[in-house]
Amino acid sequence: MSRLDSKGFIKMQGKAMAERNRMGSNVIGIVQPFVPNYRVGLFDAIDEQLAEHGYKLEVWHASPRGRVAARGNSAEGRWSVPVAQHRASFGRRNVTFRNIMGRARRSAAVVAGLASTNLETYLLALDPQVRLMLWGHGKNYTAGNNAIDGSIEAWLCKRSHHLFSYTESGKEHLVLRGNDPEKVTVVVNTTDTTRLVAAKALVSTTESKSIRERFGLGGRFVGLFVGAFDGPKELPFLFEAADKVFSENRDFVLLLAGAGPDSDLVEKMASARPYVRLVGRLDTEDLARISTVVDAVLMPGRIGLVAVDALALGIPVITTNYPYHAPEADYLSAGEDSLWTSFSVDSYAAGIDSLVKDRARLAALAAGALDRGREFSAEASAGRFVNGVLSGLTQ
Score class of each variant (00 low, 15 high):
Arg220His: 14
Gly280Leu: 10
Val197Glu: 02
Ile28Thr: 03
Glu52Pro: 06
Leu42Pro: 01
Leu196Lys: 10
Leu390Glu: 01
Gly72Ile: 00
Leu235Trp: 00
Tyr141Val: 01
Val297Lys: 02
Gln49Tyr: 06
Asn140Gln: 15
Arg98Ser: 13
Arg250Ile: 07
Gly227Ala: 06
Phe237Cys: 00
Gly301Trp: 00
Glu213His: 12
Leu393Trp: 02
Leu311Glu: 08
Asp330Trp: 06
Val187Arg: 00
Ser204Ala: 05
Asn146Arg: 06
Asn21Gly: 08
Leu362Tyr: 09
Trp60Ile: 02
Arg93Lys: 12
Ile303Cys: 06
Ile315Cys: 02
Glu375Tyr: 07
Gly314Met: 08
Leu124Cys: 14
Ser116Pro: 06
Gly373Thr: 08
Asp127Arg: 05
Glu172Leu: 12
Leu174Lys: 04
Val186His: 07
Asp149Ala: 12
Arg3Lys: 11
Ala350Leu: 11
Ser333Ile: 12
Leu313Trp: 03
Val27Trp: 01
Arg361Ser: 13
Phe385Ser: 05
Ala257Asn: 10
Leu156Arg: 03
Glu285Asn: 13
Gly223Tyr: 09
Ala16Glu: 05
Asn73Ser: 09
Arg87Glu: 15
Gly72Glu: 01
Gly41Glu: 03
Arg384Tyr: 04
Asp251Pro: 02
Leu298Tyr: 02
Val110Asp: 10
Ser74His: 13
Asn37Met: 09
Ile290Ser: 03
Val226Lys: 11
Ser391Arg: 15
Arg195Trp: 04
Glu120Tyr: 03
Ser247Tyr: 05
Arg214Trp: 04
Thr292Phe: 06
Ser377Gly: 04
Thr191Gln: 04
Leu57Glu: 10
Ile290Lys: 01
Tyr55His: 13
Val356Lys: 09
Asp251Asn: 15
Arg361Gly: 13
Arg277Ile: 01
Val203Thr: 01
Ala70Leu: 12
Ala259Leu: 01
Gly77Ser: 11
Arg131Phe: 04
Thr117Phe: 07
Arg374Thr: 14
Val83Thr: 06
Gln13Met: 12
Leu134Met: 12
Gly219Glu: 14
Gln32Asp: 08
Thr193Trp: 00
Val317Thr: 15
Ile303Ala: 01
Thr191Ala: 04
Pro261Asn: 13
Ile10Gln: 12
Gly136Leu: 11
Glu58Ala: 15
Phe34Glu: 04
Ser89Cys: 03
Thr117Cys: 08
Gly335Met: 08
Ile352Tyr: 07
Ser89Thr: 08
His137Cys: 09
Thr284Gly: 00
Arg65Lys: 14
Glu76Thr: 14
Pro316Gln: 06
Glu58Asp: 13
Leu176Tyr: 06
Asp295Pro: 05
Ala382Trp: 04
Asp353Arg: 14
Phe252Trp: 01
Gly91Lys: 07
Ala75Arg: 02
Glu336Pro: 02
Arg78Tyr: 08
Arg277Cys: 03
Lys233Leu: 02
Ser391His: 13
Lys268Tyr: 07
Asn21Phe: 08
Ser160Lys: 00
Glu120Pro: 00
Ala69His: 09
Gly178Gln: 08
Ala367Asn: 07
Asp353Val: 01
Val110Trp: 09
Met133Trp: 08
Gly77Gln: 07
Glu207Lys: 15
Ser89Val: 05
Glu52Lys: 15
Arg289Glu: 07
Gly216Asn: 13
Ser89Met: 11
Pro261Asp: 10
Val184Met: 08
Lys357Glu: 11
Gly66Phe: 06
